[in-house]
Design a protein around this nucleic acid. Structure first.
Lengths: 205, 205
DNA sequence: GTCTATAAGGGGATAGAC
DNA sequence: GTCTATCCCCTTATAGAC
């Protein structure tokens, strides 16, 4: 039973978000969206020019949500390593996959400049934000100076997206968890050993 | 102009391989396969029970090809690091994505035990094979003993799959290359420093 | 073996009533 | 604003001629 917003436009967008996540762009028909939203066909074509316009609204909203939840982890407390770990280890319904990464596999989405833009912005922001966190860690002396923040950030983001792929292929979240722990262990080796809380003041005499 | 095999069954399988790569399972119609292969509808239903049977043959063949080309890199010369690097750096048409990883995003494929099996086997083999290479590197003293081979292998495989996703979202291979170099740099830090060519025999007297 | 013909249903959009 | 009716083409498959 539908239990979302009363507003028709909202219901359409939310239904589209869910269906795009489950079935992708090609696999999602306007009819299926309407049925899930519980509205007639006329309502959709009143609020949106067509399938792609509705999909654009849905993708934008999903990307914004992802950005917010990622920022929550990455701006949290602790060291740079802690914050990246918080992002990598945050609870996910792994087998559902990433609603934005999913779109990147869809021909119609990638071939449309308009539909691809939210994906590009979202992942561009994500890589940049992780790189910022890593750079900050280097400035604070938490992370090895030799680390390339941009490349490492791309690797971190890629592990998440690739983890979803491996997990779905296996129908088991285990490969996702293994990949995340693998990259975290590699990153942990870049953490500067035993920094004194006050530089120049060894902890024990 | 079609320039593949003369054999009708072969033409169907190869056409299906290409279209599944480009458009995914839902996005690929029997009609499109027939047109690309240049055969009539009756031929397809003579050789295959239907769309999914043809797709299964195509997916199996693609998975086998990927396995062979990965094995070529991973069984090459050099240290464990060299062999993993060879796999990660091998030439790829990045924006096309991975033909097998692509299938893992497709609902109809993942929900069918039969169609998902080749994906599961391929990625399972890949993670295992990379883990073997890493374990061998540890035995030879090339890699830090603390490294978790299975987790690291999963991370390596995930970086490739996720790299494709990031690159397609950006319509630019750069994020793929950045991710690959990021994980390689992290792995390089696990390489045992300056092993003597003959243990106990320093290079210079 | 390979072809064309045919069919039942869905995809995506428009028209127009209410 | 929201609904139903209608349209044309595509999808997947079957039938049967050659």
């Amino acid at each position: 039973m539908y239990s979302g917003p009363v507003n028709t436009r909202e219901r359409l967008v939310e239904s589209a978000q869910e269906l795009l996540w489950e079935r992708g762009y090609v696999g999602t028909s306007p009819k299926a969206i309407l049925e899930r939203a519980g509205v007639g066909q006329g309502s959709m074509y009143h609020h949106f020019a067509g399938k792609s316009a509705l999909a654009l609204a849905a993708i934008r909203r999903t990307a914004e949500g992802m950005r917010e939840s990622a920022e929550e982890c990455l701006s949290g407390p602790g060291t740079a390593y802690d914050r990246v770990a918080a992002y990598l280890l945050r609870e996910r319904r792994v087998l559902r996959g990433c609603p934005i990464g999913r779109m990147a596999q869809d021909r119609d989405v990638v071939h449309s400049a308009e539909l691809r833009q939210p994906l590009d912005e979202m992942f561009g922001w994500l890589r940049g934000r992780i790189a910022e966190v890593l750079t900050e860690g280097q400035r604070r002396g938490e992370l090895a100076a030799a680390l390339d923040p941009a490349a490492t950030a791309a690797a971190v983001a890629a592990v998440v997206q690739g983890g979803y792929v491996l997990a779905r292929a296996a129908d088991d979240p285990a490969p996702f968890d293994a990949a995340v722990h693998g990259v975290l262990a590699l990153l942990a080796a870049q953490v500067t050993p035993a920094p004194a809380s006050t530089p120049g003041t060894p902890a024990a005499g």
